[in-house]
């Protein structure tokens, strides 16, 4: 644990710049997101007729939140050279060549993901919260709002938690292909949901919170926690058994 945190500290220090860039990008996303979120709530719970795009809000939350677990404004994500050079695998190979226990290595990856996610999502949430109008909170009680944020944090943790595995357990090709795969799967899923129920996932989460209160986010916390634990187990296993060429 102590060793894993030591590694985390070192690495976050080295990626300081990329992390800052990522935050800047997230501020931009937050500015994009808040009017859409406001629209969603006003339409769902209010009477006003607002122009609102269900796909936009779902795309933002469903597709982008999981990315918050990665320092995505860094070279490996931005450069296609990654496909060939596979920098994350090389980094893991280097650490595996040193006397670092595999579980420490895997744990450090999970910590980096959680810390990055916490940092990114906090900034995202703060910006959104500051920007949202009073009208918004007339329709959504502050406690409901908090639960809503918690619910989506869990969602991000569950799917973002898979990212360390993609980064460090696979190769550069998969790292660049995976987002498209993710988009494709969720695109289809969202389409099916719209078609079947007529509401979006964000709509649904808001309704669930109003209906069941605490139960929805609590379930989310449990699922996300379990997910992270198993992602970590999966990564540990993968780091132990993969070939570093």
């Amino acid at each position: 644990m102590r060793q894993a945190l030591w590694l985390v500290k070192k690495e976050l220090k080295y990626h300081y710049l990329s992390l800052m860039l990522t935050l800047v990008f997230i501020i931009f996303l937050a500015l994009l997101a808040f009017p859409i979120l406001e629209g969603t709530v006003l339409r769902l719970f209010g009477t006003e007729h607002v122009v609102y795009n269900r796909i936009m809000i779902d795309a933002l939350f469903v597709l982008l939140l999981p990315c918050f677990g990665a320092i995505f404004m860094s070279k490996p994500y931005l450069s296609f050279g990654t496909i060939k050079e596979d920098p994350y695998s090389k980094r893991m190979a280097l650490f595996r060549a040193m006397p670092i226990p595999v579980h420490v290595l895997a744990l450090s990856r999970t910590f980096i993901m959680v810390i990055t996610l916490l940092l990114n999502i906090t900034v995202f949430y703060i910006i959104i919260t500051l920007m949202l109008s009073d009208v918004f909170f007339q329709y959504l009680a502050p406690i409901e709002y908090v639960l809503f944020l918690l619910f989506w944090f869990c969602y991000a943790l569950l799917f973002g938690g898979f990212n360390p595995f993609i980064e460090n357990g696979t190769n550069g090709k998969v790292l660049h292909l995976f987002p498209y795969l993710f988009i494709a799967i969720f695109g289809v899923l969202l389409f099916v949901i719209y078609y079947a129920t007529g509401i979006g996932l964000v709509d649904w989460s808001l309704l669930a919170i109003r209906e069941y209160g605490f139960i929805a986010p609590v379930c989310a916390v449990i699922i996300a926690g379990t997910g992270c634990y198993y992602w970590n187990r999966l990564l540990t296993n993968r780091l132990r058994t993969r070939d570093y060429m």
């Binding site: 190979a93 595996r96 060549a97 058994t241 993969r242 070939d243 570093y244 060429m245």
Partner: peptide, 12 residues
Amino acid sequence: STFFRLLMNLVH
């Protein structure tokens, strides 16, 4: 190189 990586358990 593979030989060394085998010895170091980097290649299984």
